[in-house]
Amino acid sequence: MERFESKHFGMIEFQPETVIQFPAGLPGFEQESRFVALEQPGVKPIVFLHSLSRPDLCFITLPALVVEPDFRLRVPTEDLRTLELAEDRQPQIGAEVACLAVVSVAEGQAPTANLLAPILVNLRTRRALQVIAPESGYSHQHPLPVAL
């Protein structure tokens, strides 16, 4: 078990094999390559992606299928290769990859999720990449589902 002091959650403990590796970081955060995914009681299905090098860096994400139940992946071949996935087809969300959308809140506006560039995690190798997929047709500011 490893430990990391988070500014948001205090001391967090995690198994080294659960660490998510972003070989190229994320756009804007190219130096950040190691993250853990955290869930907190009471705020499911939110997944917190916490950096393991910056105590203050934590992304709020939602499973892409929660944001958009009909969400379809359009991962470019070179990204499938980076993720060590089969290159002849799209991966299966939930079985082969986790697919998370980064949530952001602009001042005075409703939160949105970036479905243009979902984060894919290879569930077998824990390798991850923020896949920028303009051909998917989704927005970088996709509205969240409205409460019923």
Binding site: V66, V103, A106
Partner: peptide, 25 residues
Amino acid sequence: QNLAAARGISLGQLAELAAQVGRGR
């Protein structure tokens, strides 16, 4: 979008967000 997301979100917004998507599904 990533830079904006990393600026954080208040606890109140977080609870609201969870309630919204939780109910939505």
